[in-house]
Amino acid sequence: MNIFRLFGDLSHLAAIIILLLKIWKSRSCAGISGKSQILFAIVFTTRYLDLLTSFISLYNTSMKMIYIGCSYATVYLIYAKFRATYDGNHDSFRVEFLIVPVGGLAVLINHDFSLLEILWTFSIYLESVAILPQLFMISKTGEAETITTHYLFCQGLYRALYLINWIWRFYFEGFFDMIAIVAGVVQTILYCDFFYLYVTKVLKGKKLSLPA
C-alpha cells in the first residue's frame, strides 16, 4: 500500500459519500444519473465477489463492504425514497450499449477464464465507462450543481491517483495488471474534459454550465 493508492481509495470514498449526503440533505436527486449509479452498484457487486473467497486485509474487506453498501443506498435513494425528484427524462443514455460490449470484451480478454475472474474483468471494464450516463446527462441539461461537480472531481482524482499508484508499483514492486491499467487510463481520459471545466469554472466560484 503506497500513499497514492491510499489517497485514491479515500478520494473514491469521499466521492461516494459526497453524493450520498448531497441527495440525503437536499432530499433530491435532481441532476444525478440513476443509470450511472446502477452501473457502479453492478461494478462493486461483480468485483467484490471475492469477499466470499479470499481475505486480503481488514482494510480491504471493510472498504469493499462500505463501497457496496453506499452504492446500494444511493440507488435506493434515487429509485425509491426520492424517486419523485429523479430526472428520468434527461437520464436517457442507453446503458445496454455499454453493458453488452463490455461483457463481450470481458469474456474475450481476461487473466483467467473462470467465472469470478470474468466478472472481475467485467467490473473493471464497466467501471471505466460507468460515468458516461452522468456526463451525458450534464451535456443534455447543459449544467451541473456545484456539489455534483465536486463528486465528479473526487471520482476523477481517484482514477488519477490510481494511475500514479500503478507507476509506483511497477517501479518498486515490478507489479502491473494490464487490464486494470488500460481500463484505468480510458477511465481517466473520460474525466479530462470535465477536469478542465472544473478548474476553469467551478474553482473560480462559477456554476458549471456548458455553452449552448
Binding site: I56, H111, D177
Partner: peptide, 10 residues
C-alpha cells in the same frame, strides 16, 4: 499479460 487472480486493489 500477467496472470494474477488475487486482486489486492479496490
Amino acid at each position: 499479460w500477467q496472470r494474477r487472480v488475487l486482486h489486492d486493489e479496490l
